[in-house]
Amino acid sequence: MKRGISYTAAFMTLLQRDLRIAIRHRGDIFNPLLFFILVVTLFPLGIGPEPQVLTRVAPGIIWVAALLASMLSLERLFKADFSDGTLEQMLLSPQPLSVLVLAKVLAHWILTGVPLILVAPLLAVLLHLDGNSYGALMATLALGTPVLSLLGAIGVALTVGLRKGGVLLSLLILPLYIPVLIFATSAIDAAGLNLAYDGQLAILAAMLVGSLILAPFAIGASLRVSTN
């Protein structure tokens, strides 16, 4: 029996579809980004403008803001597809769910993770981040934000059927984000002190590979529960 299109074709089709939809509703891309910028701007106003203090806390602020921005944007990952029934069609399609889910998560990362990485150096300038740390900041964001999207998608898939999923979502996924936060900020700190930080990057990369392999199955299983 012919199973329709190949896995790669299904993956690419879904990826292109999601990107196209997002480009037509640009607010979905810009709102999390604006939130990220605003949160980072609030910190100097709260802590005080001394450059030494800001240099010390900059990695933490940027990363915590990135966690929150990624969480906020994740909420819409499956919402539209769930309410118009596309999600159920996806569950019924002959392609394995994990491939489709991976395409959706990748699209989400391209739309929210990549802009975040591009804006981060500008914000780092505002926060007087140590000159040596820029490379580490970009590297940790590049490795870390996909992990955030993958882990967060599990939580979103679990709560998509619920009416009041928003607050619950933060309770579910923020604890899972802790290891990423710890290793990313410590890599940036180490870079600021001119120490080697490839160990932390290796662990972040390991987390990325691990969640890339395991998370799609968890997301798929959660979606099956939510659409039941």
Partner: peptide
Amino acid sequence: LGVISLYASFEDKVLAARAAGILAIVG
């Protein structure tokens, strides 16, 4: 607390148990 509130927020307790179970295993 995440597992408890996820279990509490589903009306259908069969689904609730499955969702909370997935979360517990991910945990």
